[in-house]
């Protein structure tokens, strides 16, 4: 029925209003940048400290800063919405499925570490790609966030292209600086442009 479609569309439009500010894109780009920088830091600091040094600024500075921008800059402009029961249960399902994907990726990671030299490099790369593709596609579907399908496809190509660069051209660090760095920078730029546009289109409201 046409009126049901219209209500569905309205609900989707209301939900998507929360993602028009570009902050999610900047966060994703920042996260991917870690994979571009990581291989350069690891030889000097070792796996453990390299992970700490790379991920810490992301969790301590970047993500909290984006959260504060959302709270103090975006919310006063876009307003507050508490979603309906249908959306809340959909988000619960999303959280459970993403948790399963994370456990699955952890298992794949352990498997890759255990049999690192026993299997060809492209199998590790394919596992890595599969995790990215799964996580981004599931998020895109449940969050009605179409751009994430494109991000997922581009990011999933990064380990595979990296493996090709390493196998055939012997590029150091699998060329991750470019294969992950380029999509990361493009996604961050997309986010920044969307944020600037958002600020231009949503002046601060004085009412309540």
């Amino acid at each position: 029925m046409s009126n049901e479609i219209s209500l569905k569309e309205t609900e989707r439009k209301v939900f998507k209003a929360a993602f028009q500010d570009g902050l999610v894109d900047i966060g994703i780009g920042g996260f991917l940048l870690v994979f571009a920088i990581g291989p350069f830091v690891t030889p000097y600091l070792g796996d453990f400290w390299a992970t700490i040094v790379i991920f810490l600024p992301l969790w301590v500075i970047v993500f909290p800063a984006l959260g504060l921008i959302r709270k103090y800059v975006v919310t006063p402009r876009v307003g507050v919405v508490k979603y309906g029961q249908w959306r809340v249960s959909r988000m619960r399902r999303f959280n459970v499925i993403i948790l399963i994907v994370l456990v699955f990726s952890l298992i794949l990671g352990i498997l890759s570490a255990v049999e690192f030299d026993a299997v060809p490099g492209w199998i590790h790369a394919a596992r890595f790609s599969l995790v990215f593709l799964l996580a981004f596609s599931i998020a895109a579907y449940f969050l009605d966030f179409t751009r994430l399908y494109v991000y997922g496809a581009v990011v999933a190509l990064a380990p595979l292209i990296g493996e090709v660069l390493y196998q055939y051209l012997n590029v150091p660090h699998h060329g991750f600086a470019v294969t992950f760095g380029l999509p990361a920078v493009l996604i961050i730029i997309t986010g920044v442009v969307r944020f600037i546009r958002f600020m231009r289109d949503h002046p601060l409201e004085q009412g309540t």
Binding site: S6, L7, T10, E11, K13, V14, A17, P76, R77, V78, G79, V80, V81, K82, Y83, G84, Q85, R87, V88, H202, E205, G207, T208
Partner: peptide
Amino acid sequence: LVHLYVVESVDYVFLKNQTGLSW
């Protein structure tokens, strides 16, 4: 009402942005 029907609750700013009505 269409906007309120699909959510739990909203504030004035959100409703104004979504409906395009003046204050």
